[in-house]
Each structure stands twice: as structure tokens, then as C-alpha cells.
């Protein structure tokens, strides 16, 4: 069974994003970048499926600048077999990403696409659902447990107010939530080995899909700041303020 795992290069999750003074976007110059945390979880799950003998090949695909090769190498060091980088100087919208991934799926014919539920830059939480819709494959989003057997995947999903279990017939698209697993740190020998693994270099034009943006970004602004209030001495003072000043209890 072949797995396709899309991965995205994003701002490191420990770095605070800063808006550019001219309000055209977020300043990413000289900012530490890393693999999107949800993508890391998806790679980990794919590698575990390979280690269990369920999967035979884990193919990583990324859409981004040349430097996204590093992101793919990170995944290869975790245990991915090979990579595909679709070089793009712009950050395509979710619909365009889904269309590019569909083109990759048509070529690679994986049995399962395992991916993060959302990227921490655009925060759209959309590509997996869109890809599944374009492919007419079943979807299981926000997975916290995945079990594969007999051409089907049983997936426990995190839903409003609890957990839901669904069964999807493969091929399918599964998106990873936070608690699916804890991604490993790649060992030094595996990092060295990953350097020799193949990354196929492609361009957006190779796939002939429409990636024109549908949204025009008019402005990127900082949210209104909340100012610090007062520090109180006792719990009784607090209750007094909440009752008499704020009127919320």
C-alpha cells in the first residue's frame, strides 16, 4: 500500500508572526521556518504504518519555494521514502493546492492520502476536504486514531462535544489532528540517509492546473491589543470588582 503525505513549510510554531508595517502580509524574512506541526503528525502516522507492515511506500509532496526541499528532507529523515517538490514562488490558495495534489494523486495513485488538518500560517483547515471532494474519495478529518485493514480505514475523529468513529473505504483522504501521535525526532544516521533519498523537482506548470488566486488580499493587520488590567490583593477584592465594577456575576 502506497501513502502520499503532503507537507508544508511554514513559520516555526514557536516563533510569533509579525505583520509587515505596510500591512501587505506577515514578515517571513530571516524567520525560522519548519515543517507544519500537523504535517509532522501525518508523516509520523505514515511511517508507523510502514513500520507495522501496513504500508510499503511513503511519498512526501510539498508545494513551495526551493527551500521546501529541507521540509521534505525532514520527512525523509523521519522515514519517508522519496519526495516530490512542486516549486511555487507564491503561496497558492487551498483550492489550488487541492488541484495540484489531485494531479499528483492521478500520477502516483496512492491508496491513502494522509495529511495535516491545517497549516498554521493560513489556518484554513480546508485542503484535505477539498482534495477528497475533487477526487470523489471518502474523507475522515481530524483523526485521533487510524486503523487500517481489509481495504478500509477505521478512524476516530475529534468532533464537537466528543469523538466519532467512521469507516472509510480506501482510497481515502485522512487529516491528522493533534492527538493522533507524537512525532519522533529523526536520528543522526537517518538524517544522513535522508540526504541520499530522491526528491523529484517539478513546477506548477508541469501539472497544467488553474492556480489563479480567487481572493485578493486587501490588508493584513495586527489584531487590537488588549491592555493589562489591575492586579488585586485578595479573592474578596476580585469578587467585589466582578460584581460591582464589571457586573459579570
Amino acid at each position: 500500500m502506497k501513502l502520499l503525505v503532503p507537507v508544508k513549510r511554514v513559520i516555526d510554531s514557536n516563533v510569533k508572526a509579525r505583520v509587515k508595517p505596510d500591512q501587505t502580509g506577515v514578515d517571513l524574512a530571516n524567520v525560522k521556518m519548519a515543517m507544519n506541526p500537523f504535517c509532522e503528525i501525518a508523516v509520523e502516522e505514515a511511517v508507523r504504518l510502514k513500520e507495522k507492515g501496513v504500508a510499503t511506500e511513503v511519498v512526501l509532496v510539498s508545494i513551495g519555494p526551493q527551500q521546501a526541499q529541507e521540509t521534505i528532507r525532514t520527512g525523509l529523515a523521519m522515514g519517508g521514502d522519496r519526495g516530490i517538490l512542486i516549486v511555487s514562488d507564491t503561496d497558492p490558495e487551498p483550492l489550488a493546492v487541492a488541484k495540484l495534489l489531485k494531479a499528483v494523486v492521478d500520477e502516483e495513485k496512492p491508496d491513502l492520502v494522509l495529511m495535516g488538518k491545517q497549516a498554521i500560517d493560513g489556518d484554513n483547515n480546508a485542503v484535505g476536504q477539498m482534495l477528497s471532494a475533487l477526487l470523489d474519495w471518502p474523507q475522515a478529518t481530524f483523526a485521533s486514531k487510524v486503523e487500517i485493514s481489509g481495504g478500509k480505514a477505521a478512524v476516530i475523529r475529534e468532533v464537537d462535544g466528543g469523538l466519532q468513529t467512521v469507516e472509510v473505504q480506501l482510497p481515502a483522504v485522512i487529516t491528522a489532528d493533534l492527538r493522533l501521535n507524537e512525532p519522533r525526532y529523526a536520528s543522526l544516521p537517518n538524517i544522513m540517509k535522508a540526504k541520499k533519498k530522491e526528491i523529484a523537482m517539478k513546477t506548477v506548470a508541469d501539472y497544467g492546473v488553474d492556480v489563479a488566486p480567487r481572493l485578493k488580499v486587501l490588508k493584513v493587520a495586527e489584531p487590537a491589543k488588549r491592555s493589562a488590567g489591575v492586579k488585586l490583593e485578595t479573592a474578596a477584592d476580585l469578587v467585589g470588582k466582578l460584581k460591582n465594577e464589571a457586573g459579570v456575576i
Partner: peptide
């Protein structure tokens, strides 16, 4: 919101 609410994006749809 984008970037965990650290930035607010205003977009116009075509």
C-alpha cells in the same frame, strides 16, 4: 484570522 490570530487578513473574493 491567520497565524493563530496574530494577524487579521482582509480578503476580497472574485
Amino acid at each position: 484570522p491567520i497565524y493563530a490570530g496574530n494577524a487579521l487578513e482582509t480578503v476580497q473574493s472574485s
